[in-house]
Nucleic acid binder design. Structure first.
Lengths: 198, 198
DNA sequence: GGCCCAAACGGACCATGGTCCGCTTCTATT
DNA sequence: AATAGAAGCGGACCATGGTCCGTTTGGGCC
C-alpha cells in the first residue's frame, strides 16, 4: 500500500516506477554477490544482468555505466562511514577536540579507502561525486580546520589534505615506494601538524 | 653504417631491430598527428595502425596498450619540461633560492599538467611511472624541501605537495568548485608557505 | 653470398562496455 | 474496468581495446 504524493513538488526527481525500483534492488544485489564471488574487475555487465534476470539495457538505464554501477555499490559503505563521522563515537565522531578528530579522520579514511580500493578504482570519476560542488569529506575537513582556528582558504587546504589520501597515491606509497601503512599514517599526521600547528 | 656492440652488456635492454625501430617512429608520428587532428579521446588504435601503415598487433607489441602509447607520446613534452627544471633559467631552473624555485615549480607544473590534461588522463596509470620507486617531480620537490632546511619525512611531504597538483584534483577545482586558475595557484603557494615556513 | 632462427609482423578473432528501437507493463485518469 | 501514453524492458547490434598464431624478415655467422 503505497502513498503516492498528491502534489509532486516541482524540481524533484520523477518518481521511480515500481518495477524499476525492484530491478534496481535486484541489480545491486546481483552486483554485490558477484563482486564478492569473483573480484570487482572480473564482474561484467552481462553477468550482472543475467544474474539479476534482466536485460542488459536495463542495467545501463538504471546505472548509466559500469562506473555508475560500482559507484552505487560504493554508496552503501560510504554512507555508513559518513554516519560514523557525523554521529559516531569520538574521536572520529563529535565530542573530541578538533585536532584529534582530524587525525582520527585521516586514519579512518585511509583504512576505509584501502578496504574498498578495488571498488573505488572501478567507480572511477563517478566515485568522486557528491551532491553540490564539494564532497562530504572536503566539507568535514574544512569544518574541522575552522574549529582549529585556521584562517585563509580553508577549502583549498581541505582539498590539499585530502589529496594524499586518494587511492592512486596511497597505492603508490604502499607499493613501489615500499612504505608501511603506519608510515603513511604518520606522514599524514605530520602534515596535519605542520598545517594546523602544534 | 651501424656499429653493433661487440660485447652486449648483461642486463641492458635487448637491441631493437631496425624495422621495429622504424615502426616505432612511424607509430609515434601517426599517433601524434591523429591526436592533433581529432582529440585524444577520438583516436583509436586501429586508426593509428592504419595511418602508420602497420598491423594492429604491431602497435600493441611496441606500446603494450593504449595507455602505453599515450604515455610514450607524453614522454616527449615531459622530458622537455624536466630539462627546463633541471637546467633552465631561474626561478624554475637552478640559481634562485629554493623557496622561490618551489613556488615556480608548482605554477609551472599546474600549467603543463593542464596543457596535457587529456593526454595525461589517457595515459592513466602508465603516466605516473618513473624509473625507480619515485618520480622525477617527487625527487625534485624532496630536494628543494631539503634545501629549505626542513626536517622529517621529506619524501612524504613531497608527495603531499604534489598530490593536489594531480589532474583529477585540478579539474575538480577548476570545474565544479568554480575556482580560477590564479586561485588554485595562490592556494598551492599558501600551502607551501605553511609547510616550509616564512 | 647463403643459412638460420629469433624477432617482428599482420589481421582475423575475441571480450566487453555501451547503444538502439520495437515491444511490454505500469499507473493515473475516467 | 477500460484506456492511453509514458516509462521501462530486452537483447540484437556496434565499436574498440586487446590477443593469437601462422607467416615474413632482419642480421649475425659460416
Amino acid at each position: 500500500m503505497t502513498t503516492p504524493r498528491l502534489l509532486p513538488l516541482a524540481g524533484d526527481a520523477p518518481v521511480e516506477r515500481a518495477d524499476a525500483a525492484r530491478n534496481r534492488e535486484l541489480l545491486l544485489r546481483a552486483a554485490a554477490d558477484l563482486v564478492e564471488a569473483c573480484s570487482v574487475e572480473n564482474v561484467t555487465m552481462d553477468a550482472v544482468a543475467q544474474r539479476a534476470g534482466v536485460g542488459k539495457g536495463t542495467v545501463f538505464r538504471r546505472f548509466e555505466s559500469r562506473e555508475g554501477l560500482m559507484a552505487a555499490l560504493l554508496d552503501h559503505s560510504e554512507t555508513a562511514w559518513q554516519a560514523s563521522v557525523i554521529s559516531g563515537p569520538p574521536p572520529l565522531g563529535p565530542g573530541a577536540p578538533p585536532r584529534e578528530r582530524l587525525h582520527a579522520f585521516g586514519h579512518s579514511r585511509i583504512v576505509t579507502s584501502l578496504t574498498h580500493a578495488a571498488l573505488i578504482r572501478a567507480a572511477g570519476a563517478a566515485g568522486t561525486r557528491a551532491i553540490g560542488p564539494v564532497s562530504f569529506a572536503a566539507m568535514h575537513v574544512r569544518f574541522l580546520l575552522g574549529q582549529c582556528g585556521l584562517h585563509g582558504d580553508l577549502g583549498y587546504l581541505a582539498t590539499a589534505l585530502l589529496a594524499p589520501l586518494e587511492i592512486p597515491i596511497l597505492e603508490q606509497q604502499l607499493g613501489p615506494e615500499g612504505r608501511s601503512l603506519s608510515e603513511v599514517e604518520a606522514g599524514w599526521s605530520d602534515l596535519v601538524r605542520r598545517i594546523v600547528g602544534e
